[in-house]
Design a protein around this nucleic acid. Structure first.
Lengths: 219, 219, 219, 219
DNA sequence: GATGAATGAGGGTTCATTCAT
DNA sequence: TATGAATGAACCCTCATTCAT
């Protein structure tokens, strides 16, 4: 199991001056629980995950989980909410640069491959897809904090590109989701069918860009 | 909940000669259980579904379920396996006709909208996406019985289209998944975000075809 | 532990014609659970009672309890509510007869000794005293269904007695509770101090009547 | 919650010579814990009381409780034992004065109302009634240290009164408990039914004395 | 001494599965 | 065949108690 996540926005708990040690340990434990829980939730789904296993994997006692999270559902939501948000800003920024959409799209592929597909954030996306329907607040949070922000930036980007004549029809303008569809497929495929037929995600997404914007150079 | 599914290949249990009535009743019960179970599994997921609720919804006693299915998991797999297979042949057939790929693709959109998105088969796809990782045999079955067959036909279709010059680059040839990506997105979107931002699936998929093959007439 | 309760108002569940056997068994099981639970609640108090023990004592599985009672608290309240009500009518009736209060009081002592102190109803009173403060609905139910009815009848009885000159001052009229005080003491004493200094309850209560109404014959 | 108790016998821990300040602080903490614990035990009962709440209410950390008391049960018993004993001497003294029993009884009513019913000692009595059965050592302690001493003095008092002809029959002689019965009822009533029907305890107890000894003047 | 984070046994409740009717 | 009462393993969560700081 991938253990670490590139976490740009460190800092977390203030830790004051005095017993910083204790605060640090607490934060570490909390993170260990989050990590372990993500592993378990990703592997078993929400309902089938036992907090006993989470505790064991995190190396803490069962009761310790409850020192950091109110209950199983809160723990779950905490993971979903905390893991993806950091990338949103990165993606937004990349979209706002005033260069050809084909270039930006290529950068986004790299960001996705590196920051999401190559990390456990991929599992979080899978969890949202799998469990989102049962946790309306999660779907809502994800739509509000992630999707709508990304889509806003994407629409602006597409408008600029259209103005520059980089896009042919109006399909992408009307359905920006088309740009993200292969990303979803990649995550789903990875979870279900990679062992039967592996998918080279980077190549796959770049091929998609070729379809959208005409062939680029690199793959 | 959509109650009925167009089921071309009825038949199931032979029903012998004599007490055909009994066999018919048994088959009806079995189907009622399958229907009810699909509703519940789709709404709650596998682990959170209670057989009690399935029984109640099917109008049978809890024990009756065990007369037809070995256990909860078998019931689940039975649903997954039985519901999608029928469409495969339809899709294969459509792909084998020797007409422009753009036309066939348009027909496939209609098949999808009518036979899957407009029925509970959509729920089954969602279940495969959500639970497939926990049920390797399901992923495997689905890959073998559905995906690989559809992909085989699709590859042949794409080859013919390429030969005819209907396709520009080699992206689609190398990654036929690109054709299906928006279908996955549509199913996922429907489950999670339709209440925030509804998606006109037919228009969406046709827009995708416009991107792939250049604009068609219809929308 | 006293196992049976004189239950004047048999009947309970209708039991129909057909599967009366099943209904009878169900009722028996339900009663076994109530009996066992009363034993445990009386011995340990509400919070310290484990349903595991109740089940064991009742000879059923733990889950069976939940077929008959929603949860531990409901089971508890059910006991409290079902056990005492039957005696209320008896007591009311006794009080309504138009004979000297001294005689009626003597009869009430007998009723108490026989129907309450000699049965597990005594435990129920103790439970009300012990746990009532934590279960407002129980105190309220008991006040409404038992106390207020008994007090109403008692006030009428006292009024008649006063009119007949059987009572000296107005103390009893103003505080009918004085008649019941030794009953409470008896129940409490029985639970706490009988092993140090047994209390002959019948004699005790009759002595109380001597104090209230002057000496009678019997003891 | 009544905070203070008239505590005639202060002193507790000797406090050595040197760091008396520390000892005083320790004693204060200990008392704060006892006070908080009584509040909680009275409100929730022994089993349902959480030491967490006690600590919070006492303004100390949970671990601190264990510096002063071996465990939850010890803390409980400590309260029971420490709170009531002080009044015993007062009651004994009042009973030993050589004046009419009616007068002494009137004084006892005042003592009860002031020292017990008006303080948290009332709660302790309630706790003994509620939990005594589960803590044999408490019932035993209470019987030995309180009841038997009070009853001894009471029997002497009654003997003197009988010799003086202040008592009619032998009921009180045989069952001195009759004198205390309304006290028990008052405490129980206060906990359960006061909100439905308040009881004027002083008037109630004096009415009882009217019954026992004939009407007095004041109330 | 004082703290409060950490522990882990324990208990209420659920639910897949069985089986007597 | 169909039922649904009964079972009991499993799981979430609580809380008395401990102990490193």
């Amino acid at each position: 199991m991938a253990r670490a996540l590139p976490r740009p926005n460190e800092a977390s708990k203030p830790a004051g001056r005095a017993n910083g040690a204790r605060a640090v340990r607490a934060a570490a434990r909390r993170q260990a629980i989050l990590d372990a829980a993500l592993d378990e939730f990703a592997a078993q789904g929400f309902a089938a995950t036992r907090l006993d296993d989470v505790a064991k994997r995190a190396g803490v006692a069962k009761g310790t989980i409850y020192l950091h999270f109110r209950d199983k559902e809160t723990l779950f939501q905490e993971i979903i909410r905390s893991v993806l948000s950091p990338v949103v800003t990165t993606v937004e920024s990349a979209m706002q640069v005033d260069i050809p959409i084909r270039v930006i799209a290529g950068q986004l592929v790299e960001v996705f491959v590196r920051e999401i597909y190559g990390t456990r954030r991929k599992d979080v996306i899978r969890l949202i897809i799998s469990e989102g329907a049962r946790f309306p607040s999660i779907a809502e949070f994800y739509y509000r904090e992630v999707l709508s922000r990304v889509f806003a930036a994407l629409r602006a980007l597409l408008a600029r590109a259209a103005a520059r004549g980089e896009i042919k029809g109006d399909a992408l303008i009307r359905f920006p989701q088309l740009m993200g569809a292969p990303v979803i497929l990649a995550v789903v495929w990875n979870g279900l069918f990679d062992r039967f037929e592996p998918l080279d995600v980077r190549a796959f997404l770049n091929a998609h860009l070729d379809v959208l914007f005409g062939p680029g150079r690199a793959a």
